[in-house]
Design a protein around this nucleic acid. Structure first.
Lengths: 212, 212
DNA sequence: AATTGTGAACCTCTTCACAGCT
DNA sequence: AGCTGTGAAGAGGTTCACAATT
């Protein structure tokens, strides 16, 4: 069985959002060319990406918007609700508690942890903040699927280790540091500093990068 | 002159952060192997990345931490201050106004815009929020280098168009939608939904992805 | 002995191009 | 005629392996 590349998964996520938009607009059918145009890729790329999982289109006609959305949703596991825990209720953590794109796609932040006594016990955006001391116990009890780590860099590895002890298999890390996890645990990094520094690089070396 | 890949630039950004950390710890010298280990890549990859820009190490000895940090800083344009404008002072915008990783690396958010009358005129984290109506005029007057777009998806393309009119050449977009920019303008996307959906995919298809 | 810098080999992802279906 | 699905070709990024240096 073939492995699927990160790039393909990222694009599927984008196609999925485009299809939701199109469904909302009442568009019934879409071609690979059109879907590609909405996402800044080539039509061949769209077809290749989809062909990893089956044949969802009809030659000569294109893809049915509702069906393709439903199929990509199933492929990506977006046809169910995921239990999400948030670790670290700082600036970024608070923003994520109220982030539409998580909520609307089935990612429900049901638990939040912090070690600041001033925050523990408070309810923010409908989620009550718990004491980080109980992290392992609580993520196990709540059967958390995915943890979002938004603690300072120096604390991130230890929080992740404890999440793993609590049985969490998927982690989204916002701390600007590499984290080690055992086999079978998935970790993804979201580092906003990297992207803005990439812009700094582009402005500094316009001859070394291609703009759109 | 060779083009530099996004992956290389992203890794340089990571090496840079590692070197800052090492410098803080008083570490004088680092090998490609060590730098690689801190960032989850191979030693050959580190050397190849650096070799795009010159020969910074000494055979048999490794790299001087302070010198390499300084060199990467120059390459990435992190040895200067960038003027950053924020568009959209919602949950994410507010979090970014107080984001350490921006501030400490020379990205100074000096202007913020919103169209909500309740926000205009207020000062948040030391930045006063201006009326979005004056966007083009103000980014031009303030000589903004980089704009961060944190407005809803439906407003993002139009805000970007106006930023371009105002002369902004680099944009960091948080709206979950593809944005078109003219040649010579750099845009990077930060989409947290994509990464969490990638985790959803991994949990749903453990056989199709490799964990660490 | 340790470690860099780098051409060559390797591998992976993207694009091409066309047969096949509507 | 229009559009998908896909093997083959092409492009690009990563790893190997070793000469060069300390």
């Amino acid at each position: 069985m073939q492995r699927i590349s990160d790039s393909t998964v990222h694009r599927l996520s984008k196609y999925f959002r485009t299809l939701i938009y199109m469904q909302g607009k009442g568009i019934k059918t879409v071609s690979s060319k059109n879907l590609a145009h909405h996402n800044g890729v080539t039509a061949a790329q769209v077809r290749k990406d989809l062909s990893c999982f089956g044949a969802f289109g009809r030659r000569g006609l294109g893809y049915n918007v509702v069906d393709l959305r439903s199929n990509i949703g199933k492929i990506m596991g977006l046809d169910r609700a995921w239990k999400v825990a948030l670790c670290g209720v700082g600036n970024i953590g608070r923003a994520l508690l109220d982030y539409d794109q998580f909520r609307s796609q089935g990612f429900q932040i049901t638990v939040a942890f912090d070690k600041d006594p001033a925050k523990i016990g408070k309810t923010i955006h409908g989620v009550s903040v718990r004491n980080e001391i109980d992290l392992e116990r609580d993520v196990k009890a709540e059967k958390v699927d995915i943890a979002v780590v938004a603690v300072p860099a120096r604390a991130a590895q230890s929080i992740v280790d404890r999440l793993v002890v609590g049985g969490v298999k998927a982690i989204l890390n916002f701390a600007p540091i590499n984290i080690k996890v055992p086999p079978g645990v998935y970790i993804r990094h979201e580092n906003m500093a990297i992207e803005i520094e990439t812009l700094s690089f582009a402005l500094t070396n316009p001859d070394l990068v291609q703009s759109e």
